[in-house]
Design a protein around this nucleic acid. Sequence first.
DNA 1: AGCGCCCCTTGACACTGATCAAGTGGAACG
DNA 2: CGTTCCACTTGATCAGTGTCAAGGGGCGCT
Lengths: 249, 249
Amino acid sequence: MSAVPRTPRRVAAADDGDELRFCSTCAFSSACLDNGYDKAKLHELHILVEHTGPYREGEHIFREGEPFGAIAAVRAGTVKTYVTDRDGRETVLGFFLPGELIGLNAISQDRYPCNAVALDGVALCRFSFPMIATLATRVPGIQQQLFRLLSEDIGKASLLSGDYSAEERLTAFLVTLSRRYAARGFSATRFNLTMSRTDIANYLRLAAETVSRVLRRLQDSGVIAVERRELTLTDPARLEDLARHVLRA
Amino acid sequence: MSAVPRTPRRVAAADDGDELRFCSTCAFSSACLDNGYDKAKLHELHILVEHTGPYREGEHIFREGEPFGAIAAVRAGTVKTYVTDRDGRETVLGFFLPGELIGLNAISQDRYPCNAVALDGVALCRFSFPMIATLATRVPGIQQQLFRLLSEDIGKASLLSGDYSAEERLTAFLVTLSRRYAARGFSATRFNLTMSRTDIANYLRLAAETVSRVLRRLQDSGVIAVERRELTLTDPARLEDLARHVLRA
DNA sequence: AGCGCCCCTTGACACTGATCAAGTGGAACG
DNA sequence: CGTTCCACTTGATCAGTGTCAAGGGGCGCT
């Protein structure tokens, strides 16, 4: 299916400055750094990181049921995770932006419980889970980071779980995207929706038509400007206010 | 508020059979046992377990915002976790039966992100988290168990997150309760709903009236028999079938 | 026993959002 | 340059569920 060579290459373990920058999106580097920049530990960490990609739009990173071996940090692009029910209806579990981790929900079953697909050009850092777990027994900073990341994800369901209105869900979704982009140094007020309206709908448990209508209403009231997939938050404060119930700000 | 003496007492570290049975509901004992029943390790584990309780109905175990120090396994009774929004509306995050762990979602923030309250007489095993994390660096079985438990909880949101009908949600809820009771050796077809209709509603994101109506409909069609809070699954197979979309069986 | 409280049930109605259906517009392609 | 396809938009209708209102019944309290 893919003609692009996607040979995983082991990253050289040299811990020069360049190598560190290169891995800055990987969640664990910071754990090491927080821990006092121990060269030996950084060395151990980096040799078990594998940079993979690029995956092209529509290309799958893993599929439901495949044996679990690694978690991965997104370096570039957007990843969508989803499951499909018998009737072919898709439930989107999440979108993962640069710096975020996929595969954490696979640990408990040793199999991926969902599919992961690239929504645009995607590059990853793969971490062999058995190896990083072993390393975590020797480097408490890594273990803590893993515990924290896992625990964070437990609480993430709030956007979906509440009985919120379509407008609350969608505004909260946009605010969340904005914050996540901002946290990675991208613009908080102007970014691309890398996912289709249908994807958003399947994520927020709405109909695609409803997503479309709410976006229009938000645009008409001057809160956002949306041109195809390009989004501008023209009144971020008001947007946050509309989402306040969901975000419990 | 409470007149009942609830002095936490450190459990004696003697790893005699009695002590082990006493702790059989604690999730970590099994991790140790799986790991080859190493007496020294069991010793280490047990001295950091604190048995607390009894908590009486309505008594809080922890409250939102309190500093996080420990996770806890339910030994007896039912615990409800919830948050309250500005308008006073309650969102129930989960019910925890004997053998299940509360507090896992507090790890990432070092504070409890929700309230936990006893729905009936509750007894707990408290595990100091810093201590168990330290122990985990030396006992891989413990670390794996922790990772697995955390990862499991990430996927647990499915019941709430899907856009399912009231009937699907409620039947799935009942099936889940049944399975959880069965897993702990209780009857799978006859048990008490320790939570109020309102609690169930706030958990499933339904109105209490809807819960009431669906229960009645299920009873009228012969799937369950419900008398106040006593529930009998008269046709478990059909109940599971009604819940099949949610449970993805 | 009797009272009152609270949980639960039942009914009537309104409203949000899904569904069905049709139409628009951009992008890729021949 | 026209065709086709697909994502998206817009409109009309309808069903499921929330809301409001009233009533029932167990349980603890005095």
